[in-house]
């Protein structure tokens, strides 16, 4: 694995009775793109706020570039955290915000910033209060990309952005990442849109880490098989069934397991249609399959019957 940039050990955060993060542990390597996935209220934003010293952990340890980020200039100056809820002083215009960001981020690239302003068609002289939701998101994205921080967090940065602008974001992100590699954490609900970008998946549900796995490995791990119920039953025994839909005498099941080519052959021999589940399907199945039970318990099944 590449050098470690972030280490999180047994991190817990409570707000009164609410446990936002519950014993989370993982690490992030250098120059990779991570997808931080999970439902609303899963604890993604809290996690990123603690890693950037904007919030305080209840217990557990975090290290960013080997040190605790709180009041640590050498760590903070290497981080860029773009969040959907970011507010700006009401007297600032777009170009003021970019100027401010350029003062703060040592690796700021003005050329890239200006190019992105053009790409997103952002009016530089407009007051931030008068920007639409999409324009505000674009402003955040520009700050996040042009800062070229060695550790960059994007927390649902696309709110209000149209499909074209989102594609520009993904394209620019990948292009700039290729030329200037850095560690990027992308927290998003639009999983299908970013599934090609993400190299490593972190899935959080109800404050707990459900998945910490290479995106490529995950894709092979979860399969959707469809065919006669008996054959599906037969195949599903080799893994953990996450979801099943019945239609007459045929079933369609999402199964998680350590599948290899032999398993694929076996499925075909059983007369089953086989396909790798999309990242979005996997996330949906995993986060709904754990309702009311401990996460990642083998054999957790959620059945629904269609008539």
């Amino acid at each position: 694995m590449s050098p470690v940039v972030v280490t999180v050990a047994d991190l817990t955060k409570r707000y009164g009775d609410v446990t936002a993060l519950d014993g989370v542990s993982f690490s992030l390597g250098e120059n990779r793109i991570y997808g931080l996935l999970g439902r609303n209220g899963a604890g993604k934003t809290t996690l990123m706020q603690i890693l950037t010293a904007q919030q305080f952990a209840t217990s557990g340890e975090v290290a960013v570039f080997g040190q605790h980020p709180y009041e640590n200039e050498s760590v903070l100056s290497r981080i860029s955290f773009i969040k959907e809820s970011q507010t700006y002083p009401s007297n600032l215009r777009v170009h003021h915000v970019l100027r401010a960001a350029s003062l703060v981020h040592p690796r700021w690239n003005e050329e890239l910033a200006q190019q992105l302003v053009d790409d997103f068609r952002l009016p530089p002289r407009r007051n931030v209060r008068k920007l639409s939701r999409g324009m505000l998101s674009a402003l955040g994205i520009i700050v996040g990309l042009a800062s070229r921080a060695p550790l960059t967090f994007f927390d649902e940065p696309y709110l209000g952005l149209d499909a074209v602008a989102r594609q520009i974001f993904y394209d620019r992100l990948l292009a700039d990442f290729t030329e200037h590699p850095r560690t990027i954490v992308l927290s998003t609900h639009l999983i299908d849109e970013v599934s090609d970008l993400i190299e490593h998946v972190l899935l959080i549900d109800k404050g707990r880490l459900l998945l910490d796995v290479e995106a490529e490995a995950l894709r092979g791990q979860v399969l959707t098989v469809a065919g006669p119920v008996a054959a599906v039953d037969e195949f599903a025994r080799t893994g953990a069934e996450l979801h099943r839909a019945l239609l007459g005498g045929t079933a369609r099941a999402t199964v998680r397991g350590d599948f290899g080519p032999a398993d694929h052959d076996r499925a075909r021999a059983l007369g089953l249609d086989l396909e790798a589940s999309s990242l979005q399907d996997i996330v949906v199945r995993l986060t709904t399959a754990t309702n009311g039970s401990a996460p990642s318990t083998p054999g957790v099944t959620r059945k629904e019957v269609l008539r």
Partner: peptide
């Protein structure tokens, strides 16, 4: 008052320490 209510969330959001 505005320095705290407006500039503080902005500056911390950009990655300044509270001391700075």
């Amino acid at each position: 008052i505005n320095v705290i209510t407006q500039d503080f969330p902005f500056a911390i959001g950009l990655g300044m320490s509270r001391r700075s």
